[in-house]
Design a protein around this nucleic acid. Structure first.
Length: 821
RNA sequence: GCGGAAGUGGCGGAACUGGCAGACGCGCAGGCCUCAGGAGCCUGUGGGGGCGACCCCGUGGGGGUUCAAAUCCCUCCUUCCGCACCA
């Protein structure tokens, strides 16, 4: 007997597919195109089960699209810059390039074992100078347009990785480094930024793309748009001196009883009176020293110090005391606020602590004038607000804003939580920023013709934490492209998120020399139709790549504004204990072990069967056996060598001699319908369940149908439907059926809707909503017939027990509910 | 605190637009086959009651709408994720 031997057939077909270049996508093919992209891996060294979970289902989906008649581009590459390579260099003396390329070689072999339809001819590796030269090119284009700039700014610094971090890379309440978990510290440094905030408004617009609500919400929250009013407060006894405040509640301006400056605010020194100076200085010192952890502690009492000066409310000329307090941040809004304790919880607590007046200006319904127990934040009626009294506060919001604009007191303004993207990294293993500092000419961009600025291979890697480029004289010292005199290169490299912000374009023409991608090829494939990857990139990669595409549009490189039309986020695969896989927990599942014993098809199918793709979930080593058994059963069924012996077969005959459940062709077509719909929606788990059911059914009726055309249709369909999910076994069985190579270039089976519809249905008979009987009836039973059937049914009558029938609900094709009084 | 998602057998999960709860698989129990394979076959398996035909209960808790609720509404609880002094 010829048993299912996954190891042998998988090796065989992988070699054949590669030799035949079965998966190379053709540009300009007349079929409709479909660009299916999965987030490319970082070459950490080994392909882990998480990679499989991200990639095997996406391969199945891409294969399905191909069988649906699309010309599918399904590329793969490596996100090859980053810290681990540099750390390996420091710890083990291996050059980051060597380390990275060795890992890539190993991972390529592991990826091939998956049997995916990647087009390896388009592989990209971001640490290749021919790749990162375009990072530099983009940077120069942005620099020309003022979208890349250098600024002295307080930046987040990871003391362990010895580098700055983008705001998005600082995570959690503890404000730790996204990569290593070390608490970050603030440093004041000259760094390069990309002006993503120029696109803040546009990035809030998701029209035209079908992205998960979750990602949209995360991005919206991250961008953090606030609409409000900015106005200036003049300072009493300081003619000509004023500071700006921003508020989202201009309707509460008459309720201002104090003002607050951020401790770092530039006016603090100037306005502080001599008698307050010592206290203010002490407070500033304290605020500066406090770590962010302390400063953000939720239980912490709000505090501040009066600086001795008074600000004048522009609406009523009333002076209010000015404080410094660290609950006001220099980095948001204007770095100063109006203190309205009656209508802001923080101001309320502050006013209580320092005995400041709490003046209600938006009255809650039924307010009697009594003090409020907490800040009142909702809509109300204006009081104590001069000409605006009596208006609903939402109306007053607009009227006061209008008034401020008309009189020049202030203007409407929008602020964002989003900051510009800090891209400077004080590390070696990244794209050099193509800038030269000349003592005579200043900051000079490297001319395009001099690109790429190549990383020197002979850098030294020492555990000092200092960037190797900074100490590399040959790299650092250069000549000014403008005046030719001695100058210095920028030694910082770019955040690796730059690499992944536009990689989808490089896949189109990875060896193109005239630009980041060939526009002719781009016109055919772009944009990406389907993108898949983890949710962890919601506010970093996925925001950056949208930004990048908008910049590319404004540079005239593309004609659209969004890089990926549809996005799907798969879940996370957990260890057997239900916890996140980690070496320290010892719950890491190595896919290679299972591939070696059960085969790649089983691993693929199991990962898809485990549950909804978006849900992730725990790995179960027993569960995978069930899927493996299923493939065995399919094999035996199709090859026709299911064990014919003994009582097992007798049992099968027993099953087959029972009343026929449904005709074979109906089962075939309804399974095709179900699997088609499931794959369309990435519901791999239920698609596989349907194929299991179908297989179980085929075993039951095999004796009756074997050899008939309907049987052949069923078996062919089964193999075709397995092709995207388990490509190797499908190819082998397809060949054994005598069908032409390759199963993967066949059309997806179509179904006849009439056949997919059940010829008979189970009609449920209920009395007062409780199921009392089930009867098999023709699917086209009329409503009247169903009603008749129910009322004459013996069990229904028994449960009616002579009671009066009040109503009979008939749901055609489903049930009849007899309702008693 | 704010925003989002979710709670279904011993486990992973299924259930169209409100219409048979628990598909499929794991596990478990019993039986079979086999010179033993990462082979296969059959039966049973939500809880409780009954010799049985059958009956009752059951989708986090409580309440509601409805002929009918896992599904809709209110409320509470729990878990996960994100943001968190953003003015």
């Amino acid at each position: 007997m010829d048993r299912y031997d996954p190891i042998r057939i998988e090796a065989k077909w992988q070699a054949r597919w590669e030799a035949d270049r079965l998966y190379e996508a053709k540009d300009f093919d007349p079929r409709p195109k479909f660009y299916f992209l999965t987030m490319f891996p970082y070459p950490s060294g080994d392909l882990h089960i998480g990679h499989w979970y991200a990639m095997a289902p996406s391969d199945a989906a891409a294969r399905y699209k191909r069988m649906q008649g699309y010309n599918v581009l399904f590329p793969i590459g490596f996100d090859a810059f980053g810290l681990p390579a540099e750390n390996a260099a420091i710890q083990h003396g291996i050059h980051p390039y060597r380390w990275t390329m060795d890992n890539i070689a190993r991972m390529r072999a592991q990826l091939r074992a998956m049997g995916a339809m990647w087009d390896w001819s388009r592989e990209i590796i971001t640490c290749d100078p021919e790749y990162y030269r375009w990072n530099q090119w983009f940077f120069l284009k942005m620099y020309e347009r003022g979208l890349a700039y250098r600024a002295l700014a307080p930046v987040d610094w990871c003391p362990r990785d010895n580098t700055t971090l983008a705001r998005e890379q600082v995570v959690g309440e503890e404000r730790v480094c996204e990569r290593c978990g070390t608490p970050v510290v603030k440093k004041n440094l000259e760094q390069w930024f990309l002006r993503i905030t120029a696109y803040a408004e546009e990035l809030l617009d998701f029209s035209g793309i079908d992205w998960p609500e979750r990602v949209r919400t995360l991005q919206e929250n991250w961008i953090g748009r606030s609409r409000g009013v900015e106005f200036d407060l003049s300072v009493k006894d300081h003619p000509g001196v004023a500071f700006r405040v921003f508020t989202t509640r201009p309707d509460t301006v008459y309720g201002m009883t104090f003002a607050v400056l951020a401790p770092e605010h530039p006016l603090v020194d100037r306005l502080t009176t001599p008698d307050r100076r010592a206290e203010v200085e002490a407070y500033k010192y304290k605020a500066a020293r406090e770590s962010d952890v302390e400063r953000l502690s939720t239980e912490r009492e709000r505090d501040g110090v009066f600086i001795g000066a008074y600000a004048v409310n522009p609406m009523n000329g009333e002076p209010v005391p000015i404080f410094v307090a660290d609950y006001v941040l220099l980095t948001y809004g204007a770095g100063a606020i109006q203190g309205v304790p009656a209508h802001d919880q923080r101001d309320f607590e502050f006013a209580r602590k320092y005995g400041l007046p709490i003046r209600v200006v938006v009255a809650p319904p039924g307010w009697t004038g009594a003090p409020l127990p907490a800040a009142y934040l909702d809509e109300g009626t204006m009081v104590n607000s001069g000409p605006f009294d009596g208006l609903p506060s939402s109306v007053a919001w607009e009227r006061i804003a209008d008034y401020m604009e008309e009189t020049g007191i202030g203007r409407r303004a929008v602020h964002y939580r989003l900051h510009d993207w800090l891209i400077s990294r004080q590390r070696y293993w990244g794209t050099p920023i193509p800038i030269i500092y000349c003592p005579h000419c200043g900051t000079v961009p490297v001319p395009e013709s001099d690109l790429p600025v190549v990383l020197p291979m002979d850098a030294e890697f020492l555990p000092t934490g200092e960037s190797p480029l900074k100490r590399h004289e040959g790299f650092r010292r250069t000549r000014c492209p403008r005046c030719g005199r001695e100058a210095e290169r920028e030694t910082d490299t770019m955040d690796t998120f730059v690499d992944s912000s536009w990689y989808q374009y490089r896949y189109l023409s990875p060896r193109y020399r005239e630009g980041p991608f060939d526009p002719r090829v781009g016109a055919y494939w772009l944009p990406v139709d389907q993108y898949t990857g983890g949710i962890e990139h919601a506010v970093m990669h996925l925001l950056y790549t949208r930004f990048w595409t908008k910049v590319m549009r404004d540079l005239g490189l593309v004609t659209f504004s969004e890089p990926m039309l549809r996005l799907f986020n798969q879940g996370v695969i957990l260890g057997e204990d239900g916890e996140k896989m980690s070496k320290s927990r010892g719950n890491v599942v190595n896919p290679d072990d299972f591939v070696r014993t059960l085969g790649a098809d089983t691993v693929r199918a199991y990962l898809m069967f485990i549950g909804p793709w978006e849900g992730g979930g725990p790995w179960n080593s027993r569960g995978i056996d069930g899927v493996h058994r299923f493939l065995h059963r399919v094999w035996n069924l199709v090859v026709g060598t299911a064990t014919p012996a003994g009582r097992g077969d007798a049992g099968a005959e027993t099953a087959a001699s029972e009343p026929e459940p449904m005709p074979l062709r109906h089962w075939t077509h309804r399974t095709i319908k179900k699997v088609t719909e499931d794959l369309e929606g990435f519901h791999f788990n239920t698609a596989i369940a349907a194929l299991m059911e179908f297989t179980n059914y085929l075993y039951q009726v095999r004796a009756r149908y074997a050899g008939t055309p309907a049987w052949r249709e069923a078996i062919r369909s089964l193999v075709l439907m397995l092709a995207p999910l388990t490509p190797h076994i499908a190819e082998e069985l397809w060949e054994r059926l005598g069908e032409p190579y390759s199963v993967h270039t066949q059309a997806w089976p179509s179904y006849d809707p009439a056949l997919a519809r059940a010829p008979t249905i189970t009609l449920v008979l209920q009395v007062d909503g409780k199921v009392r009987d089930r009867v098999q009836v023709p699917a086209d039973l009329t409503e009247a017939q169903a009603r008749e059937l129910a009322l004459s049914n013996e069990k229904v009558r028994r449960f009616l027990d002579g009671r009066e029938v009040a109503d009979v609900i008939v749901v055609p094709g489903r049930l009849v509910n007899v309702v008693t009084r």
